[in-house]
Every structure is written in C-alpha cells, then in structure tokens.
Design a protein around this nucleic acid. Structure first.
Lengths: 359, 359
DNA sequence: TTCCAGAATCAAACCGGTTTGGACGGTAGC
DNA sequence: GCTACCGTCCAAACCGGTTTGATTCTGGAA
C-alpha cells in the first residue's frame, strides 16, 4: 500500500533495441523480427543480413516485451511449500534443481523458484497463473488425493509431477522411479543372501513414494512366506540422525534384524554409525541396502560402492521432467506423458551373507 | 532459426485485467493502477473501493506487462556455471537456494535459476542484462581476481557476492563467513586439548574461502610455534569419499595426526568412516572438528552434537544475501554493504584430549 | 502490354500494465 | 466575482517486442 518508487534500469546500459537495429538496417521492425524468428516469408538474403547485424551488435530481444507480446514467459516454475523445506526436499534439492536448470537451459527456458506458505499454496498457484509468470510448473512430493492436480487443471496450468499421487484417477503427466519394484528387489536381494529378519527404515510415509517402497518391501517378504514385523518398520525424515536413531533402536531389540533396507544414503550413513557404535561390522554382522539418489556430493560410485543400493539419479529425473514439461507447453495437444524409471541394483560392501545363527 | 510456433496461453483462464476492473468500477485504468500502487493523489474513498473490488475479483497485475512498463523484472538471478555443478555447490545448494527463495518471497521477488556454460559465462550475464530478465544477481564461489565483478560493474548489473574475491580492490557488496577466524579457532581448540599434530582436510583451494580457512589453520599453528606440515594438508571436493580418502591416507602415515580440521560435515562423515575402518575411535584416538553449514538434512544439532564444529548457517547466508541484493536494487544510491558472519564453535563428541604419547 | 499470383516488406494494432501531462471541479484568496 | 490553487481523476503515450492486414515489387502467363 505504500507508494512504491521503482527505479528503472539505466537504459543506456541495456543492449540495442529492435527498432534501432531495424532502422540501422533500413528495414521495418516487422521484417527484422520475422527474420530472427525464422519465418519463411523473409528472403534468404535479407535474413542473412539481419542475422549478421544482430550478432554484430549483440542484439538480444527484451524478454519482458517478448513475454508480453507472446503471452509466454519462458519460465517454468518450481514451487516449494515452506513446510517442505525442512522435509526431505533438501537432500535432493540441489541435484534435482540442477537437473531442471540444465534441461531448461537447453530449450531457452529458465527456472523460477518460488516459496508458498503452506496455507496459501492454492492462492500462490492461482497468482502465478494470472500473473503469467510461468508457462508451467513442476510439482513434487505428491500427496494422497493431491488437490494440486485438480487445481492445475482448473486454472489451465501445464504441469508435470515428480512421482504419482495415490488416489488420483484423472490422467496427468508424471515421472517416477519404480519404487515398489526397487524395494522389492532390494529386499529380495537380502533374502537371497540368507537374511530372514529384515528391517525397513523408510522415508516419511505420508509421501507417496515411501508408501510404494514399503509395499515393495512387504510384498517381497510375503512372497517368501515371511510376515512383515511392524516393529522392524520405521519411517521419518531422511536425515542421518533419524537413520542412526532407527538403527540403534532396532539393534537394541531382543532379536535384532540381520539386514535393513534404507530409503536414502543419508539415512544409511546414520545406520552405519549405529552399527559401528554397537561394535558390529556393516556388511558382515548387519547388511544394509539403501536407495541411492546418486547425489553428486554423496557419491556412492566408488570402484566398489560402499553401499549396496538401488540407484536412480534424481538429477536425471529433473532433466527428464523439465523436458516433459516443455514439450507439454509447446505442444498442448500432446497427450499425457508417463515415465517410470527403473532403479539399478549395484552391489557394494554393505551387504553380505546372513550370519549363521549360533544355535 | 526455425519457425517457432508459440502458443499463447488461453486467455479465458487468466485473471481479470486492469482495464476490465477499471471499467467495472467506472474509473480509468490510471486511477485504479495508482490506487493499488498507493499513490497519494487518489482519494481514500476511491482507493478503498478499488482495493476491495480488486480483492473480490482476485485481480493480479500481469507481471510481464508490469515488468515491461517499469523496466523491472522482480527476479533475482542465480547463475550456476556448469562446471560448478559438480563442485561444492551441490551439498549446500539446497539450503542456500532455500534461503534465497525465502527472502525473495518476503519482498515480492522470485529467484531465477540459470545455467551458464563455463566458456560462455560473460555472455550469459550480458544477455541476462540486455534481456532485462533479472534485476540483479547473486554470485557465489568467488575466484581470485574474479572477472565477474568488473563485468557486473561494466554492464550495470546490481549484484552481491557470497564470499570475497581475493585480489579485487574495487568495492562491492559481499557476505562472508569469517573463515579465517573460524579455522583459527577450530585449530586453536584442538591445541588447547593438547593436540600438536593436526591435519587439514580442506575444500578445493582454488576457491577463496578455502584459502582463508587454510590461512586460519596455519596461523593458529604458527602462533603456537608449530610448523604446518604440507603432508598433513589436503584439499579437494567436499565429498564423503574424498574426506574418507584423505583421512585414510593420513592415518597410514608413519606418524599420523591426532586430530584433523575438516571443511565440511560431508567430508567429516568420510573421515569418521576412515577412522573406524582403522579400528580407532573418533573423539578418543583421533579428534575431528568440522565446518558445519548447518544443512537441514545433515543436521549436527543433536542434544550433544556428533561433530564438534564451527557452525554457520548457509541458509541464513542465502537469506541475508537476498535481502542485501534487493536493498541494493531498490535503493541504487545505497553504498556498498559488507557482512562478515562469525561461526559459532559447538562442542560435540568428535573431539577429546590428545592421547598421551606412549614414550 | 496487361494482368495476376506470389514473394517480400511494412504500417499499425496489440499485449497489459505504468506514467506523463493535462482537465475538471471545488475552495481559498483577493 | 475572478483568479489561483489544490485535490482527483483521466486520455494518451509509452515500455519493446509480435502479429495482422495491407502494400509494394517481382516475374510469368495471357
């Protein structure tokens, strides 16, 4: 409500304008614009002249004017709910955002990061839409019956979802890791090594992928005729500390598990700490298999990986999502796109044959 | 060069426009615009009427049009050089970007993320400027005699630097942690515990802050009459793996150090692993003190922290930098701002008295 | 030579705001 | 009673591109 005094950018410093370039060339702005945009009704000779002059003068069309004229902003949005910021977003945020940014750049887009207060999420999206600030959004952390999907359809906002929202039947574009299969395989792998008592240290099970991971884990056990033991299943934020706490608790039980399936490398590091504090050896006394988001700063890509893991790069997920979204923006007729990535199972030093039970 | 077919956003879905609102109110667009912007020449009664109608109809001014008219984009830029993406950016990126995003939101700005190919960095900034895409930029990872600073001055781009660039004398706004003092204190702390042989596992020393950290470490040793031993100083990417490798190497030396100063929690986790692999106990046989960026997913904030650390929140740094930059954008007369944050020294379980030398 | 289709170009409108430079009506001052 | 001035409000220009609809310039067919 205050009188806001906006200082315009010093215009002397910004580059040449279309009008200047066109008068310099003795052409109309129309022709120059079309020549640069690649329209066919400009003669090859003229186009060459224009392109060269533009390059020579370092002409860059003003994005704001272009955005206004075309109704397109060349931004894709990534909206972070502020209650998520403390949640699992963070460990993967760097690589995920990196992936988005990389692919955006390839297509001439930028990434617009915004914060939404938890209770104003819907309003933030509506505002984003009516402001025309972004051409589409990447949603992450799908919730059960996620209300954002209906909202996006309502306001006509192109979007892609990182993950799938349980309970939503309407079609929408998503990319997900096959978490169920990944955790099924991980659990199965441990059983093949002879483990029968296997714990689960999961991410927060209010989030969809954690539910699927648990389902994969439970299914593998069930198929082997083992009943999943609620006492061996925990979930919570994917921090080192929580991983440590969960493992420590399990190791303190009368009959501790001989192996655990863990939802992130960060947690797994805490798990390792708990194992060592208990005087045990990881990969020998206790086997650990983790989900590995292939984060660049927590690399598990040594010649022989430290952690046996089901690996799926979250950076690649970001790249693919950006590409999917841009495709959807530029080809609205495009039908719904679905991508299910399979995690690879890499064997490291954190797993081994189940210790023989001293009978 | 291809004919690019832009599909405008369906206009039926975007919100009400200024013209519609004004004709609805029986006022001119001018008056409505001014009423909402808080200009004094609108009567209180009219203003109230306008504000209410705007709220009722959910009017949101189109950001693109506003940007074009005012010459301001309400974006601040964060440009990631693609060679940095694999470097130390990542571990802290999530929290740093989170901090930027949070403060931006408070001031009605958004964060624009872009990628610059390493050899096109200058071009990217120029383009950003002439496109008018952002009102200012946050630079990070200052290099010696960083050429970006002169470039920003040349193109008239408001900016703030996360860190300080060695060799630059021209004034510019920056925010930094007092890395020299932090590492001086950390080293001094270890010496007070009786340690005399202290290693350094630093971040990549092509980056300014790593140079300062080393200087603090060396100064503390020198003051105590200890000559810094090059064999006990390593530097490299701040990953778990590199921390592990460096510590392992040190422990393999004929006379291993009894303590190490480490540049990040991520590295420290690798250091811990190496210590345990050697059959030693951290905080007993070997003391470890780390720099702690206070990342939310690698929290070292347990009741008794695992790692003794010099702590400085990188999220807070992001917040403060956003605020500094926006202040600079909105008050160009603003003189240069400098903020030097002091790290706090928190004691955890990873340090203890130096083991007595078996004589 | 005339006419016309097609190629190449341009003037003007448009995107949706902000801002400049009045215009209008009412009150105060002389 | 007339002018001066102030508080309100508005028409039109402007930001810098894109796009529509018209115009000019070709060359070839009639």
């Amino acid at each position: 409500m205050l009188h806001c005094n906006l200082t315009p950018i010093q215009s002397g410093l910004v580059g040449m304008k279309l009008r200047e370039l066109s008068s310099h060339l003795g052409l109309s702005p129309t022709t120059v614009s079309r020549a640069l945009a690649g329209y066919p009704e400009v003669s090859a000779k003229t186009r060459a002249r224009v392109v060269e002059a533009a390059a020579q003068h370092g002409y860059q069309p003003n994005q704001r004017a272009k955005a206004l004229a075309t109704g397109r902003s060349f931004y894709i949005g990534h909206i972070v709910s502020s209650h998520d910021t403390e949640e699992m977003v963070n460990p993967i945020a760097g690589d995920f955002i990196g992936g988005l940014t990389e692919r955006c750049a390839d297509f001439g887009y930028s990434l617009s990061m915004r914060l939404a207060k938890p209770d104003q999420e819907a309003m933030t999206f509506r505002k984003l839409r009516s402001e025309g600030a972004v051409d589409g959004v990447v949603l992450q952390l799908p919730r059960e019956n996620d209300s954002r999907i209906a909202l996006m359809h309502e306001i006509g906002m192109p979007f892609v979802m990182h993950g799938r929202a349980r309970g939503i039947t309407a079609p929408y574009s998503w990319l997900d890791v096959n978490n169920t299969r990944a955790f099924h395989r991980a659990t199965r792998f441990l059983m093949d090594l002879g483990h029968r008592s296997i714990g689960l240290i999961n991410g927060n099970e209010t989030v969809d992928y954690a539910v699927r991971r648990r389902a994969g884990y439970v299914a593998a056990l069930t198929e082997a005729g083992i009943k999943a033991d609620p006492a061996l299943m925990t979930n919570g934020p994917m921090t080192e500390d929580k991983g440590h706490g969960a493992m420590r608790e399990m190791l303190g039980r009368p009959v501790p598990p001989s192996a655990v399936v863990v939802s992130s490398i960060t947690q797994a590091i805490g798990v390792r700490r708990a194992i060592q504090e208990a005087g045990l050896t990881m990969g020998q006394d206790v086997s650990v298999i983790a989900h590995d988001d292939d984060l660049s700063y927590l690399s598990n890509r040594q010649t022989v990986p430290v952690f046996t893991a089901v690996r799926s790069s979250v950076r690649e997920a970001g790249q693919r999502l950006a590409e999917m979204l841009i495709r959807q923006i530029e080809q609205p007729a495009q039908s719904v796109q679905e991508q299910l990535l399979e995690a690879e199972l890499v064997v490291g030093t954190s797993t081994g044959a189940a210790p023989k039970v001293s009978a």
